[in-house]
Design a protein around this nucleic acid. Structure first.
Lengths: 172, 172
DNA sequence: TGCAATTAGTTTCATATGAAACTAATTTCC
DNA sequence: GGAAATTAGTTTCATATGAAACTAATTGCA
C-alpha cells in the first residue's frame, strides 16, 4: 500500500512540519503561568477563602487605597465584570468598604476595612515568600535578565494583539 | 489627627508593606501568558473555528498520531475533561477519528482526518510565524537565556506545587 | 473461572468567565 | 436649563471549566 511518499500525499505530519508543543513559547508560558498561579493560590485560597481576582483587588487597593473599581480593573489587568464581582464578594465578607467619589458620584471609592487589611497583611508576606522560593536559585544577574525578558515579551505581545495599525490614515 | 504613626496602628498599608503587583512575578507571568495566548488565539480561533484546547489536541496529535485521550491530556498538560470535550467537538466537525487501541479496548486511538490535517497544516505556519514575531527582537543568546529561565521556573513551580514532602511522618 | 480493584473516558453539577445589554450618574453642547 | 451622548458599574446570558460521580472495559488475584 505504501507508494512513493510524496510531499503532496497529505500524510501524517512528518517531523519537519510537526510543531513541538513543548518547545512552543506560547504554550510554555501558559503552562508556567498556570503552575505558578495555581501553586500560589494554594497558599491563600483555602486559608483565607480568597479567589485570585479577590486577592488581586486587595493587592491593588493595598497600594492605591480609595481608587474606583474601574481603576482597579486597569491596574490589575482584569475585566471590569470580574472586578465588580470580586468587590461585591469582598464587601459581603466585610473586607472592603465602598464609598463614593465626591467629584463623580458614579465612581466608587474602595477601601479595605480593618478586617480586609488584616487579611492583606497576612498574605503579603506569604506572597513574597512564595516569589522568593521560586527565585531562590536565581542569581541577581539572572533575575535582572528574567525581568527584562518578561517586560520585552509583554510589550511585544501587547503590540501583536492589536491587528497592525493601518499604514495610511483612516481610523476606525 | 495624625498622631505618631506607629507600626501597630493598622493604618493603610504603607509603601514598605504594600506589594507592587506590577513587579510581582506570578502576576507578571499571568499577564504575559494571557496576552500571548489571547493574541495567538486571534490568529486561528475565528478563522478555523477552533478553541485553544482543540488546537492543543491537534498539536499533540500532529506529533503523536494514534495516541489516546489520556496521553493527549498528559502531553498537553490539559485536564482530561477538557480533552474529552475538545476531542468530541473535533470529531463532530470531522477533524478527528476515534479508533480503539487493539491491546486495551478502553483506550481510544486518535487520529486526524484529512480535513483535520488540512487545518493543522495551515495553523502550524501561522503559529510559528507568531512565535517568530514575538521573538523577532531577541538575539540567539537572549533566546537561549529565555528558554533556560522558563525551564527552571517551571521546574521550581512544579516542585512548590506539591506541599513539601513531610520530613518526619505525621501527615495531616 | 469469576469477582474485586483499577483504569479510560464521559457526564453531571456547581462555579467562573466575559460579551452585551442594562441602570444610574455625569458631561456635553445647543 | 435640558435633551443627547458618555461613562461607571451591575446584571444577564451563553459558554467554559474542573471536581466528583459515573460507565465500560480491563487487570489482578483467589
Amino acid at each position: 500500500m505504501k507508494l512513493i511518499a510524496s510531499a503532496r500525499m497529505q500524510a501524517e505530519p512528518s517531523s519537519d512540519t510537526a510543531l513541538r508543543l513543548e518547545d512552543f513559547l506560547p504554550y510554555r508560558l501558559s503552562v508556567l503561568a498556570n503552575l505558578v498561579s495555581g501553586s500560589l493560590a494554594r497558599v491563600y485560597a483555602r486559608r483565607f477563602d480568597l479567589t485570585v481576582p479577590e486577592w488581586r483587588v486587595l493587592a491593588v487597593l493595598g497600594r492605591y487605597p480609595g481608587i474606583s473599581a474601574g481603576e482597579v480593573a486597569e491596574r490589575a489587568a482584569m475585566d471590569k465584570v470580574t472586578v465588580s464581582r470580586a468587590v461585591a464578594r469582598l464587601i459581603a465578607r466585610g473586607r472592603l468598604r465602598r464609598g463614593t467619589n465626591a467629584e463623580d458620584r458614579r465612581r466608587s471609592a474602595l477601601r479595605m476595612t480593618a478586617e480586609g487589611r488584616a487579611v492583606y497583611q497576612r498574605i503579603v508576606p506569604l506572597a513574597r515568600a512564595y516569589e522568593a522560593e521560586l527565585l531562590a536559585d536565581f542569581s541577581p544577574a539572572e533575575r535582572t535578565s528574567l525581568d527584562q525578558l518578561i517586560q520585552r515579551l509583554t510589550g511585544e505581545a501587547a503590540r501583536l494583539r492589536e491587528p497592525m495599525a493601518p499604514v495610511q490614515a483612516a481610523d476606525d
